[in-house]
Structure formats: C-alpha cells, structure tokens
C-alpha cells in the first residue's frame, strides 16, 4: 500500500492507501480503504470509507458510509443522505453533520453535532464552550439531534428530541423533549426537559 498526497486540485478514483493526505481541494469518486486519512483542505468523496484513523482539520463531504477506528474532527465533516458513521472513538472539536446515524463506543464532542441518531456507550457533547477557534467560526451552529441512546450520556447546550440511557447528565441550556433513564439522572436548572420516564435516581 502506498501513501498518496493530494496537493492543489485533484481527483482520485478511490483505492487502497496507507496514508491519504488531502492538502488542497480533492474529490474521490469511489471507495477508499486506508490506514490514515488526513484532510487539511477540502475533500468530497462519494464512495464508502474504511479507515483506521480519519483526521479532518479542513472540510470534508461524504455521501456514503464511513467505518473507522478513530475519527478526529477539528474542521467540518458532513455525511449526507442516510449514510452512517461507525467508529470506536470519535473526538470532535469542530462540526459533524450526519444525515444518518452515528455509532461509536465513545464520543467526546466539544463542538457541534447535527445528526439523526447517535448511539454508543459513552457520549459526551458539550456545545456550550465557545473557546475553540473553529467553533467560534461556526458559533451560529447548534447541536441538534433526533435521538441519542447510550449507556452514559452527558450533554450541554444540545437540543434533542429523545434521549435514552442509563446514566444521564443534562447540562446547561439543553432542550430535550423525551427522556428515558434507568440509572442516575441529573438535570441542570437551565435545561428544559419535557416527558421523563424510567426507573432512575435523581442526582443533585
């Protein structure tokens, strides 16, 4: 497997790489399998992505499923239509927009996520902190999700239709329509939560 670097403007047909670097403006018309994908420029891909580590500091636009071990987003990653993001770990300090589901064991977002559904083991989304440069740039964005389901959930300044989990912390400025909890539950006084169900212990 080879390393490949897209500098300037270029187009690839997909394929297998050890490391794919996009530093300019690149597009890809079919699937990519790689150990590492680094995006520092603009990348559009219409094929499926299978990668160990996806790192995006630029702007990436995908229209098919992404399967990764680790995803690190410091820029903007958009996954259109019903395409899915599957990973063991997702770290987001930028923006993720997903038309389909995001599924990961561990998600830690200090940025914004817009998604239809997020599933996992430990999910933490804090959209309240605006210290990061890229987040400031997108500060008009809002974390808006239809469904979050995970063992442990921690949210700040996130709007969600339905939250289901075992241990749930609803932080400042969250807006939740329905919440089902079967462990411990904390709700910040500035958060708005509609219907609450489940067998839970309220934490102060």
């Amino acid at each position: 497997m080879q390393d490949f670097s897209l500098e300037g403007i270029g187009k690839i047909n997909g394929g297998e790489f050890r490391t794919l670097n996009v530093e300019g403006v690149g597009s890809c018309s079919s699937g990519v399998k790689a150990e590492n994908i680094y995006i520092e420029g603009v990348f559009n891909c219409s094929g499926e992505i299978e990668v160990e580590h996806l790192h995006c500091e630029g702007v990436a636009d995908f229209t098919a499923n992404i399967r990764a071990k680790r995803i690190n987003v410091q820029g903007v990653v958009s996954v259109r239509r019903d395409a899915k993001i599957e990973a063991e770990e997702i770290i987001c300090e930028g923006v993720i927009k997903a038309g389909g589901e995001i599924s990961a064991d561990f998600i830690n977002a200090e940025g914004f996520i817009q998604a239809k559904e997020i599933f996992g083991d430990r999910i933490r989304i804090n959209s309240h902190y605006h210290g990061k440069r890229i987040v400031n740039f997108f500060k008009r964005e809002k974390s808006d999700i239809k469904l979050i389901e995970a063992t442990t959930i921690e949210l700040s300044d996130v709007t969600v239709s339905t939250v289901n989990g075992r241990d749930i912390t609803i932080g400042p400025y969250c807006k939740i329509d329905h919440l089902d909890c079967n462990g411990t539950l904390f709700i910040d006084r500035t958060a708005t939560v509609g219907n609450i169900t489940g067998n839970y212990t309220m934490k102060n």
């Binding site: 599924s103 599933f119 083991d121 469904l147």
Partner: peptide
C-alpha cells in the same frame, strides 16, 4: 447495556434488519 448492543451491531454480530423501528409517542 446500550453500549454493548450498539457495539455488537457495529461488529455485525446483530443483523441490522433485526432493528425494526416503529412509531411511538416518544417519536420512534
């Protein structure tokens, strides 16, 4: 746990077609 269920789904231990979505008063 939710985490185990979705990990097994991602690992293809549980087929995606077994997840059947129905409308409910909470949405789905």
């Amino acid at each position: 746990s939710y985490g185990q269920l979705y990990r097994w789904k991602r690992e293809r231990l549980i087929p995606e077609e077994w997840f059947i979505k129905q409308s409910a008063y909470t949405g789905q």
